[in-house]
Amino acid sequence: MIVLQASILDTMNPDDPRGRILSTADRLYYEKGYAAVGMDELRQAANVPLKRLYREFPSKAGLVLAVLEYKRERWERELAAYLDTRDTPRERLLAVYDYLHQWFCTDTFHGCGFINAYGELGRTDPGVASAVREQKAAFQETVDRLVAEIGGPPALATQLVLLAEGAQTTAAISGDPGAAEHARTAAQTLIDAAATSASG
């Protein structure tokens, strides 16, 4: 996994104004979109003075990048903790899709926040595009490592990531969390095929 230079989650206090701004911005941007949420709405929702908001984040562009970093670190920690509940490398690999299914079943699921950010801002904001690419690369590295642990070929990791990314988009558009279960079934077929090929 790509390691962040500084841990936002380690230094952030949700009761601190900066922490409240980040967590509130993350929620509002994810629910409504980046363009739809102005700094005044964010100020009110985070319960901080506008002057304090701009002191912490002088520009909305800087705030958006901080939110993406915050979102990425939270995603990586939550996924890692979930995978650690499984005993074998194969179970951990398939648990990626169990984690997605659990997420898709929540009332707050609105698709992948990184894909959403890229779709809205990625073509005009190189910083956002870079942050999204880094998150996707980090997820690929996680799956690469899990596939290596079961002795699978590198191509398998790419295929499994495509299934996970496709499930997120499909679930967001269709509103059907079952996309994760279908992706898991397909992933299991690919994993078993790779194991058979390796043993044959």
Rank of each mutant, 00 (worst) to 15 (best):
Q5T: 07
Q5V: 06
A6V: 12
L9G: 04
D10G: 09
T11G: 15
P14R: 04
D15A: 04
D16T: 00
D16N: 11
P17F: 05
R20Y: 04
I21Y: 04
S23M: 09
T24W: 02
A25S: 07
D26M: 03
R27Q: 10
Y30P: 00
A35I: 02
A35H: 03
A35S: 04
M39I: 10
L42N: 02
R43P: 01
A45R: 14
N47H: 11
N47E: 15
N47T: 04
P49G: 09
L50P: 00
L53F: 07
F57V: 10
F57S: 04
S59P: 00
A61W: 01
A61D: 13
V67F: 00
Y70I: 11
E78C: 05
A80Y: 00
Y82P: 03
L83T: 07
D84P: 00
D84W: 00
T85M: 09
T88V: 02
R90N: 04
R92N: 06
L93A: 07
L94W: 10
A95K: 05
V96I: 15
V96F: 07
Y97K: 02
Y97H: 11
T106W: 09
D107N: 07
F109H: 08
F109N: 03
G111K: 05
C112H: 07
F114P: 01
N116I: 01
A117Q: 08
A117H: 12
G119I: 08
L121W: 10
L121R: 15
T124A: 15
T124Q: 14
T124D: 15
D125W: 13
A129W: 14
R133S: 14
E134N: 14
Q135F: 15
Q135R: 15
Q140W: 06
E141Y: 10
V143K: 01
V143Q: 02
D144S: 05
D144G: 08
L146R: 14
I150T: 15
G152V: 08
L156S: 08
A157Q: 06
A157P: 06
A164H: 07
G166M: 03
T170C: 13
T170P: 00
G175H: 11
E181T: 12
H182Y: 14
A183L: 10
R184Q: 11
A186W: 02
T189R: 09
D192H: 12
D192L: 14
A193S: 14
A193C: 04
A194T: 04
S199E: 15
G200C: 08
